[in-house]
Write a protein that binds this DNA or RNA. Structure first.
Length: 290
DNA sequence: GTACAGGCAGTAT
DNA sequence: ATACTGCCTGTA
């Protein structure tokens, strides 16, 4: 998964952007375009090679975005000491966690509550079109993700016109929290998991699951283990003995904490990678409507 | 019609 | 402390 590598490596990149972590990617001809904060990222498949480009220009953005500095050999062998995961890791070579723009990641998962992926994509696309800066590239019009200042000054009605529904209140409130520097997202990278998470939980609209997604997908906390209904299903089928306290697909707040912590201990510092493999696997097998 | 979809805050035990 | 309920909105 490096610039100029054989075509098979593009599959890794595409599966990673299509693995439910990020929502603003689209395919046009042989290229994939994705919005990440102010940037427009592009993965193009040219003849036998893969090229990564970016607007505004940025050298080797793929190294940070696809976490190429992570030692996948070590991670895979580490996770493979678990029998279930050993088989899944083998099935999806090259699947990766992404390192997304923290603000966009936060708003993306704020929009994710009690809905589905096509709806999340629609909400975010509408937000970028209404509030984001235009980016002209390859003769087309794209839109960057809007800034916190912009979202903070938007009215609830304007946000709702993007299809956010009751989430509009949370988006506006969180935007204010960040714009006022009451919360400094990038600072959370340096903190311990527990401290970073407790700061996120202060934000209106962010609960256990959303906080863990933000930590894992944008703030380098690869030990976070978010649990949505799909992960819950995976845990029921593979780890019912480890999660003794666990009863059904819906988790109460207390159950979430118990199960998430149990899995964090079970998998260790790469628990988030384990979560991503489990998620990708179950979505490959059941109900992938996107 | 109505159940449901990648949770959350508010309210009631 | 822990459990219960309503919620925007589009689709099946």
């Amino acid at each position: 998964l490096l610039s100029g590598k054989p075509i098979s490596h593009s599959i890794d990149a595409i599966t990673s952007v299509n693995s439910g972590q990020t929502f603003l990617w689209e395919q046009i001809d042989d290229s994939w375009y994705g919005v990440d904060g102010n940037r427009l990222l592009k993965i193009s498949v040219e003849k036998t090679e893969v090229a990564f480009s970016c607007y505004p220009e940025q050298e080797h953005w793929e190294r940070t975005f696809f976490r190429l500095d992570d030692n996948m050999a070590e991670i895979e062998s580490d996770l493979s000491s678990d029998q279930t995961l050993a088989a899944i890791v083998k099935k999806y070579p090259g699947l990766r966690l992404l390192r997304q723009d923290p603000e966009q990641c936060l708003f993306s998962f704020l929009c994710s509550s009690n809905t589905n992926i096509p709806m999340i994509r629609r909400m975010l696309r509408n937000l970028t079109r209404k509030f984001g800066k235009k980016i002209y590239s390859d003769g087309r019009e794209f839109f960057a993700f809007p800034s916190c200042t912009t979202l903070a000054s938007a009215s609830i009605a304007e946000l709702q016109s993007c299809g956010l529904g009751y989430r509009a209140k949370a988006v506006k409130s969180a935007a204010k929290t960040i714009a006022s520097a009451e919360l400094r997202l990038s600072d959370l990278k340096q903190l311990k998991y527990e401290e970073a998470k407790s700061q996120l939980l202060e934000v209106y609209g962010i609960g256990n699951k959303i906080a863990d997604c933000i930590l894992l997908f944008s703030l380098d906390h690869t030990d976070a283990f978010p649990i949505d209904v799909w992960i819950a299903r995976a845990l029921i089928s593979h780890y019912s003995e480890i999660c003794k306290c666990y009863v059904g697909e819906k988790l109460t707040a207390r159950q979430y904490e118990l199960v998430s912590e149990t899995m964090r201990i079970h998998f260790g510092k790469y628990a988030g990678y384990a979560q991503q493999y489990l998620y990708y696997d179950i979505r490959q097998r059941i109900g992938r409507s996107w």
